[in-house]
């Protein structure tokens, strides 16, 4: 036993030496990692100690660590608040719709772009589709307000000229979900397609040539070669999307909120702002944030497990 333990220990030591040797050999490459590690430590790990605020009764003069503990009080307050179910449901519905309609959009766009043979046209379309990503939601929603306003907006002017009544698209409850999903697709599909386009470039051309010889058309090639070829990327992106299901898009939703859609547009993030941050209830806001994170972690683990089981794709 002792001998085998000594052998394992020696093996470990030699492995460690091996790793250090490799690090020394490629030290410049590892140096490139440093900014990422530092930024992770500073912006992701260091602030984590602030999560303890969720379990404290925060006092300005005592600071985060000095404030008294109150256990799960803020979580109880949140879960027993009358808005809890409405807000959680709204968040999941909006994120769910975004996943159902918004998740496939960049994949479809990438597949379509992949089929375009004229390089100049392809690049022009790609560039145009990326641009909305760089426009802030404030600008997007302002543009939408101008376009869809019932008082002189172009869409309603067209409706009026056709003898139809003006519709307050931005304010009516029935139009809220379509507005959210479509504006989200418009803004993010182009940018999201980059990942898939890069994955597509890795699919072997020989497979297509062989398939064409066997008589496969474009649709069959897409279904049997392209999609399986980027399955891994789709799986990973899907896991991330499900993990972020409670991030329904704070700035977009806040800006699109109107009195008529308030019942279905109040999401966790806007609720946190209104009931927590605006009133200095940092601990309450942190508790909601932590609740979100834990829920997202559970969902992400579950999706990862399912994905590994059925698609053989996982992030760990």
């Amino acid at each position: 036993m002792n001998n085998s333990a000594a052998v394992i220990s020696l093996e470990k030591k030699s492995k460690r030496k091996e790793i250090w040797k490799r690090i020394k050999e490629h030290k410049i490459l590892y140096l490139f990692l440093l900014p990422c590690i530092v930024s992770l430590l500073v912006f992701s790990y260091y602030p984590m100690y602030g999560a303890t605020l969720a379990f404290k009764d925060y006092k300005y003069n005592l600071g985060i660590m000095g404030s008294p503990w109150v256990g799960f009080k803020h979580f109880e307050d949140f879960i027993t608040s009358p808005e809890f179910w409405t807000v959680t449901r709204n968040t999941i519905v909006i994120s769910g719709l975004k996943i159902i309609f918004g998740f496939p959009a960049p994949i479809i766009l990438a597949l379509l772009l992949n089929e375009v043979k004229c390089t100049k046209f392809k690049r022009a379309v790609q560039t145009m589709s990326y641009l909305p990503n760089f426009v802030s939601w404030v600008v997007v929603v302002t543009l939408m307000t101008v376009v869809f306003t019932p008082y002189g907006g172009i869409v309603n002017d067209i409706r009026k000229s056709m003898g139809l009544e003006a519709i307050f698209f931005m304010g009516e409850k029935n139009y809220f979900y379509p507005m959210v999903v479509l504006s989200d697709i418009w803004k993010n599909a182009g940018w999201g397609s980059i990942v898939y386009l890069s994955a597509l470039s890795g699919v072997s051309q020989e497979l297509y040539e062989a398939a064409i010889i066997d008589g496969a058309g474009r649709l069959k090639c897409t279904w049997h070669i392209t999609l399986p070829g980027i399955k891994g990327t789709i799986g990973i992106m899907f896991i991330f999307a499900v993990g972020g299901i409670l991030n329904a898009g704070f700035d977009q939703i806040l800006l699109l909120q109107q009195p008529a859609n308030n019942e279905i547009s109040e999401i966790l993030d806007t609720f946190t702002l209104k009931t927590g941050l605006n009133y200095g209830r940092f601990e309450y806001a942190t508790a909601i944030g932590l609740f979100k994170s834990v829920f997202a972690l559970v969902l992400m683990s579950l999706t990862n497990f399912i994905s590994q089981k059925f698609m053989e794709v996982g992030i760990w």
Binding site: T145, T149, P150, M170, G171, Q257, Q258, P259
Partner: peptide, 9 residues
């Protein structure tokens, strides 16, 4: 349609 529907926001 007397009060501006956009005025609340």
């Amino acid at each position: 349609n007397l009060l501006d529907k956009e005025c609340f926001k």
